[in-house]
């Protein structure tokens, strides 16, 4: 069937549905995370005394042109392994957006 998508200012035609996915990257346990420690301190200073350990990380939201969620997930893992995360210091998990048709 196909569909028109916007890519920036351009319109692009694709036969595939888009699958949206997320890659969550954070430091492995045991790897120094001074940002997390600083955020923890700030939260405690704000009076959130229930706050324990804080680990910081980042999330990448990606759109993939594919009709196959399983393939999309595999691709996301591959991208995370090769670029988005550094396996020496970071771990990741991937997630596909709920409600993906196909």
């Amino acid at each position: 069937m196909g569909k028109i998508f916007r890519v920036g200012k351009e319109a692009r035609f694709s036969y595939y549905e888009r699958v949206k996915g997320k890659v969550f990257v954070k430091k492995k346990a045991g790897v120094l995370d001074p940002e997390g420690a600083t955020i923890q301190k700030a939260l405690l200073n704000l009076g959130y005394r229930e706050v324990g350990a804080v680990r910081s990380g980042r999330v990448f939201e990606l759109e993939l042109e594919t009709e196959n969620p399983k393939e999309a997930e595999e691709k996301l893992r591959e991208m995370a392994r090769r670029l988005l995360a550094n396996p020496v210091i970071e771990e990741f998990r991937v997630e596909l957006e709920d409600g993906v048709k196909n």
Partner: peptide, 17 residues
Amino acid sequence: LCEAGLLPGALLRNRSL
């Protein structure tokens, strides 16, 4: 060189930030 795998390990944010 670390990212390229030519040297082992990684360089993290300075402890002091």
